[in-house]
Amino acid sequence: MKASAYGKHIGCIALFLLCPFILTSYGVKLASEVLIMAIFVMSLGLIIGFAGLVSLGHAAFFGLGAYAVALLGNHWENTYLLLISALVISGLAAFLSGLLFIRSSGAYFLMITLAFGQMIYAIVYKLEDLTGGADGMAVVASPNLGAGPIDSRLGFFYLTAVAFLISYYFLRLLIASPFGKSVRGIKENESRMTALGYQTRTYKLAVYTISGMLAGVAGALYAYFNQYVSPDLLYWMFSGQALIMVIVGGVGTLVGPAIGAGFFVVLQNYISSFTDRWPLIMGLIFVLIVLFGKGGIMQIAALLWQRFRPQRNSKPAQQAMAKEGNGIESVKS
């Protein structure tokens, strides 16, 4: 990266951290939720967009992370310990399930992950003594990184903001690294990767596990955020929502899924304020996106930007965008 690129990043981060000063208190709370969802959706975007593994059971890892904080939080107070527990538990679940699933692909993989997610859901739902069953359970633990409890909305925003930035830059490094490039190669052409000498399953399993860990961290943050967890967090509808956020944001990009998450969280909050028919509306959005959506938000934004920006040498940028975010199309390649 050149110095100017560093400058841009630092500028963006600064703007981002200044957000709370232009938002209402409710807005700050919503922004925290957006950031948590963004981490979750980025984790799913990683396996869909870069590894070509389309999962419909990803909420299981998010939910496990959330329940880890809720259940272990009854015994432990240390925030670091709880976050790491969430990461380890979700990561372990992803690793073990991945060992079994990773050799299937496409629709088969999707079906098996869906069944797996619903199994975790059913277990949490049925273990009433422990989890409160359908009623869910309150989260006792409150976040404290060592400098006193974080109990204000503003404080929590900064906690999630830091978590988001760490996740984002971690994933950025990951996808540019030898490991990330290899995963991309496997999505592109697994048989050639094998012929080149790559143990493709190991890579897929590793990226699936990393993705599960990140989803677990997002779930843990959500437990702190919401102070309450319920089996809905593991339900396939939630996995599906995350999937559509990835697609709306743009498959094969890193920022796309985060933007998709923001778009949906805000939309859901807005719509839920005057109707209970959110599932219906979400279903319609699914159908409309499939039938009419060509590429995600990132693609559309790139086209608009292309159209309305001052005329400079903008062609390469557009080509780059077109190459990056082909929405649904680029999942399969």
Partner: peptide
């Protein structure tokens, strides 16, 4: 189109 089919039927099931 594998993914589109899944998304479509998924959306329909919610509707």
């Amino acid at each position: 189109k594998e993914l589109e089919q899944v998304l479509l039927t998924f959306g329909l099931s919610f509707i």
